[in-house]
Design a protein around this nucleic acid. Structure first.
Length: 317
DNA sequence: AGCCTTTGACCAGCG
DNA sequence: TCGCTGGTCAAAGGC
């Protein structure tokens, strides 16, 4: 069984918040593009929605995530839709993408001060790239400590900041820079684990099409197209664009999913602190278009349930 | 042995 | 100039 962080993340969100809002902003006051993703709960969720294992009961039907990308230029919103169809399956239950050591949520924490996501999304390495943590700090204004990660590739400038709650729930992720190298093989220690597709999603187009500075941020500069209409990203995990049922959306910034989805049609659009709000509502009515349109993302990483799961498992120490 | 995390210290930007 | 804050460095230790 493979648990995609992504799935978990989604599921948890559903469980805990029913409604959540993802605010992302690509700010690059400097020359470096960056994407900020934050998840904030609007409504606490009832614990009774969870089964003993802490996962949602089958009643969860899936939901529709709508991504809005305000256009700096005309304030027009670019909207992307993400279909969430949590599968009752293993994919949801499996949890191989373990979060960082200290982040592992222990069961149901009694006190989740308003936690929204009840799951610790995997370590920030599960986006297909390898990351090294180089610092952690309690930032003022943030109730949670912020961790700093660098891409371990020798020449890669990409960094990201991750804020996690005490229980390991990611509350905000900010990516900075663009990968200038292909994703490392999945078998690395830092794990790629599941949800690698996400990173594919994130970079396939960019890296394939061009080279550097086109990844996440670069891509994001590409325009308000969410998902960019590149079908490729799904392939890695065996995702089938035509198989909505297995679809899922990755909200975990760690995966850069959001980043990918934040691509905009115009170039350097995100140069200035553009906030992107991603709000979701639960609903099942999805049309095919949504799945194929740029804003849509299918998740279900790993429908086969093998592959990454095992790998990630083996990587864990 | 190599890579990663942890953590305190240091540095730079800003008011 | 000083203090605050965020970001980074680097030593130490763990896996």
């Amino acid at each position: 069984m493979v648990l995609r962080t992504f799935d978990i993340f989604v599921v948890l969100i559903i469980i805990n918040t029913k409604h959540f809002q993802v605010n992302s902003a690509v700010d690059q006051p400097q020359s470096e593009p960056s994407v900020k993703v934050s998840v904030r709960p609007e409504n606490p969720i009832q614990s009774n929605n969870l089964e003993s294992n802490g996962f949602p009961s089958q009643t969860q039907q899936g939901f529709h995530l709508q991504l809005s990308f305000p256009e700096p230029s005309d304030t027009k919103d670019l909207v992307g839709n993400v279909n969430f169809n949590p599968q009752p399956s293993d994919s949801i239950m499996s949890n191989e993408n373990s979060p960082p050591p200290d982040d592992q949520p222990d069961g149901e924490g009694g006190d989740r001060r308003g936690d929204f996501s009840s799951v610790a999304v995997g370590a920030p390495a599960e986006d297909g790239y390898n990351w090294r943590k180089y610092g952690q700090k309690q930032v003022k204004g943030s109730e949670f400590p912020r961790s700093y990660y660098k891409c371990t590739h020798p020449t890669c400038p990409v960094k990201k900041k991750v804020e996690r709650s005490h229980e390991g729930h990611i509350t905000e992720i900010i990516y900075k820079g663009a990968h200038n190298h292909p994703k490392p093989p999945p078998n690395r220690r830092s794990g790629v684990g599941s949800c690698q597709q996400i990173s594919d999603m994130q970079y396939d187009g960019t890296e394939q099409h061009d080279s550097q500075d086109k990844s996440l941020w670069g891509a994001s500069q590409g325009g308000g197209v969410i998902g960019n209409g590149r079908p490729d990203w799904r392939s890695d995990c065996g995702l089938d664009a035509a198989a909505p049922s297995a679809a899922a959306a990755s909200v975990g910034p760690e995966y850069g999913v959001l980043a990918t989805s934040m691509q905009t049609q115009d170039g350097p659009r995100f140069e200035a602190h553009d906030a992107i709000d991603v709000s979701s509502t639960l609903s099942n009515d999805e049309d095919e278009d949504d799945q194929r349109t740029p804003g849509s993302m299918s998740m279900g990483c790993d429908g086969d349930g093998d592959g990454d799961g095992d790998e990630s498992e083996s990587k864990r120490r």
